[in-house]
Design a protein around this nucleic acid. Structure first.
Lengths: 300, 300
DNA sequence: ATAATAGTGTCTTTCAGACAGTATAGT
DNA sequence: ACTATACTGTCTGAAAGACACTATTAT
């Protein structure tokens, strides 16, 4: 059928004759970053437990990248919405369904998967660690929670003829007991007049499958920036929590300490007192708070 | 081959026997929102021209949605990066290559295209209107610049048993001479305890193809939010510009007036004086500025 | 009393918003 | 002189950052 003939069909007729196999198509997958913040035991006497940002990874049992760690994910079914695919994956891995889920980015470089052309949309999910089952993942594959460390280790500014390039190198390290995997990511911002271009590439990857180091780095950055201007942190909290617990969640994600008085002023409008307190050991009991559902960044 | 047998292959062997046609795959397209801010002539005597936010749309010559207006876009080639596909589209439509381009979101609902399952990644591009050719688009299809109006027209808060739903309805109107297309988009934020969920849906669409009304709405929101905390506005400016021109670009995107003194204080660190001024007609000449390439939101 | 954490008060600086003023071209 | 735009100074109040202080429990 020529394009000319196509134009003269009715919409009904057109849809009947449409052949979707005309073009060679890439595969589409969904990868999910499931974050949680867990207590790192080691409670000595009356000290509070340390907190740690965790990410769920799956050990690959098949080629490619057999034995490497990867983000949980899988192919999108032909009759399933993109977000549904992510929710399904999430349910399989954590057993939970009402989790916060947000689309992050779609990774579509040609060589990112050695099998074939695979375009992958990444999602970020946040879960309260108390609600998570002890062992994550379905039977077949080995899933494990890795502690996340993501730090800027080097920046430099290179002058070019017509502008400059600003390069930053970040070190991502994920640890689980003896196992440690890592990646080094370079972000370059090229400036020429008022034209700018930002590129992100993996310059070293150990134990991580595909381009997942880059995806995780992107996810951590998004998490850090969103926690400062939205209420997403509450998705990592149980129903009732103390302000110190909440502050530690912020600190572990932002990877820096916050001043208590200032922190409390900032989150005051987002929380409500429950009236009850924690009966701890060894010090002043802290008040328990809930998320304030009427909080609204736009001011109602 | 059983999964068991698959496991025992070497990576080399595995890749050779891998059959990508095992699963039914969706098609992948790229859609681009090309924004510019143009002068709306009608200069009476010594008045400054009004500015208007414009978006490029293509009139569909084929089914489905024949005769409706759609975002420029197309299928992603099997050996082309996702971003390359967007750049190619951009080049075809505007003739320019060094434009600002940023990925927005990937739309993957099952029914969004009546032909077959199509997943589309949307990109946003910004261009200085002075560099754009008079007639956009390649020969075949009718391309036109539409002025963009996007306004909140209604909000309500519905109480439920366990929380509430916050609904906002936005009206999107795109105009080009006599032609006007529009869509109405509802955003609902459901809050239940600390679980929240945000949904965006088209509740009315006139003259716009597919779910493009929703995509445009998303793009305008992203543009509005990014212009307030980044330097993307400079991608809409010529090399040299006056501060009043820059302010009008901000105003037309944010759809509200800004106070001159405050605006100038805010953008001062992002611009550099060129030394020259505009020799206008009828009033004090204004200084010309350039983008300050050393400006850095993180503070160098 | 001491250890450990919980929680408050206040100073300073920065920044957004509002408004009123002065300056300078062409006609 | 008048019109139209260009540009500046300053007040206010809110929010971010830093720091020092008081409070309350279990042992």
């Amino acid at each position: 059928m020529t394009p000319e003939e196509e134009k003269n069909l009715s919409e009904q007729e057109f849809l009947k004759t449409y052949d979707p196999s005309k073009f060679e198509r890439p595969s589409v997958t969904v990868d999910t970053l499931i974050f949680t913040v867990s207590d790192e035991g080691a409670e000595s006497y009356r000290r509070l437990p340390e907190k740690s940002l965790k990410l769920l990874l799956i050990k690959r049992g098949n080629h490619p990248y057999k034995g490497h760690w990867a983000l949980p994910g899988g192919f999108v079914d032909i009759d399933e919405n993109l977000e549904e695919a992510a929710l399904r994956e999430l349910k399989e891995e954590t057993g939970l369904d009402k989790l916060f889920l947000e689309q992050l980015y779609t990774w579509g470089d040609v060589g990112r998967d050695p099998r074939t052309r695979i375009i992958s949309t990444s999602y970020m999910a946040l879960a309260d660690s108390a609600r998570l089952p002890v062992t994550a993942g379905d039977d077949a594959d080995a899933a494990a929670w890795f502690s996340v460390s993501y730090k800027l280790i080097e920046t430099q500014k290179i002058l070019t003829q017509s502008g400059h390039i600003h390069e930053s190198i970040f070190q991502l390290t994920l640890r689980n007991g003896e196992e440690a995997v890592s990646a080094r990511i370079r972000t370059s911002r090229t400036v020429e007049g008022n034209y700018t271009d930002t590129k992100r590439e993996i310059i070293e990857s150990q134990g991580l499958a595909f381009d997942h180091g880059k995806i995780i780095a992107y996810g951590v950055e998004r998490l850090r920036s969103k926690i400062t201007y939205t209420d997403i942190a509450f998705h990592l909290m149980p129903e009732r929590f103390t302000l110190t617990q909440l502050q530690k969640v912020y600190e572990v994600i932002l990877d820096r300490e916050l001043l208590k008085a200032n922190f409390r002023r900032k989150i005051a409008p987002m929380v409500v007192e429950t009236g009850s307190t924690v009966k701890d050991a060894g010090h002043r009991p802290s008040r328990l708070y809930r998320y304030n559902p009427d909080w609204n960044k736009y001011g109602d």
